[in-house]
């Protein structure tokens, strides 16, 4: 039997609750968490050639995490009431975890940066080890914000927090590569040629590490979509929305092709010895991750609920 034509004659839809500020906030916390993890890895390895990267990332992480919550406050309908988050906390809400994590993490990041810059290695190592779980939870909880909003089929998957963490690593490393390359190009003139060569090699190694995290990210995204396509009807609709629907250009075009496949080829392909290719790949990766946040936050809400 053929289905009859179905037209919605009248229905009410309220405006999208979460807007681009939220996606931007996810992007900035991701950058911060990613660069913090890189900084701690550099500090823990303790080798002399990792020092510049450890220093750059130590200062990037708290700066980015001071910018990030401004997006959240701008998104509030009552921005002057933001302090209610601390006074009237609700332990079942992921936003409450976030408001405390977002306070603790930048403070820790600033202390860690001071330790790194004043060369107190042991203190920096201890703070770094303590800080990694904090950095992971600061970004991981943002995945839970989406995953626990159960109304939206695109968000309500167990893969969401992990996808957010891995894409945070991707974009964070990308940012570190860009900043380290700027430093190498213009602010590293005093170093000896051997040292410069070493620094360049280090940046290229970071870019390769980024390519491997992109692979992990792609695996997670593909598995998420495969499950969406075989789950219930709303999930199928969500999967089709990003694969063939309105958000396909952003998801397939920008996030997957421009933001993941092309950077991977640039970094691992014939141009793998070129610093320019690494920087271009890092910029593309950051565009791709930003598109991913946009698709997730805005796209997830465009599927009609009634």
């Amino acid at each position: 039997m053929e289905q009859p034509d179905i037209n919605v004659v009248y229905n009410v839809k309220h405006q999208l609750p979460l807007i681009i500020y939220i996606g931007q906030y996810f992007f900035f916390t991701g950058l911060s968490a990613g660069s913090f993890v890189i900084s701690v890895i550099a500090t823990l390895l303790g080798r002399k050639e990792f020092k510049p990267i450890g220093k750059i990332t130590a200062i990037l992480a708290p700066i980015l995490l001071i910018i990030a919550p401004l997006n959240l406050i701008a998104d509030l309908e009552q921005p002057l009431r933001f302090w209610h988050l601390f006074l009237y906390y609700n332990w079942t809400s992921p936003i409450t975890y976030g408001s405390f994590l977002l306070t603790a993490y930048p403070i820790m990041g600033i202390i860690y940066a001071i330790m790194v810059y004043t060369n107190r290695q042991t203190a920096a190592k201890i703070l770094g080890i303590l800080g990694i779980p904090l950095a992971i939870s600061v970004h991981g909880y943002t995945g839970f914000i989406l995953a626990l909003a159960k109304a939206r089929a695109l968000w309500n998957t167990a893969a969401m927090p992990t996808i957010f963490l891995v894409s945070a690593m991707v974009s964070g490393i990308g940012l570190v590569v860009i900043v380290a390359a700027i430093r190498w190009k213009w602010f590293d003139k005093k170093a000896t040629p051997e040292q410069r060569e070493q620094d360049k090699r280090l940046i290229l190694q970071l870019a390769q590490f980024m390519a491997y995290t992109i692979m992990l990210d792609l695996f997670l995204v593909v598995s998420d979509i495969l499950v969406l396509l075989t789950a219930h009807s709303d999930a199928l609709e969500a999967g089709m929305l990003i694969l063939t629907g309105n958000f396909a250009p952003l998801f397939v075009g920008v996030e997957i092709i421009l933001g993941a496949l092309i950077p991977m080829v640039l970094v691992l392909g014939p141009t793998r010895k070129s610093l320019t290719a690494a920087v271009v790949a890092s910029i593309l990766v950051n565009i791709g991750v930003y598109a991913m946040r946009f698709v997730m936050v805005i796209g997830g809400q465009t599927i009609p609920l009634s």
Binding site: H14, L18, L72, D75, E77, R81, H84, I95, A149, A151
Partner: peptide, 9 residues
């Protein structure tokens, strides 16, 4: 505070 998370959920 108008975070709109309830609307999203």
């Amino acid at each position: 505070i108008g975070c709109k998370y309830c609307i999203a959920s």
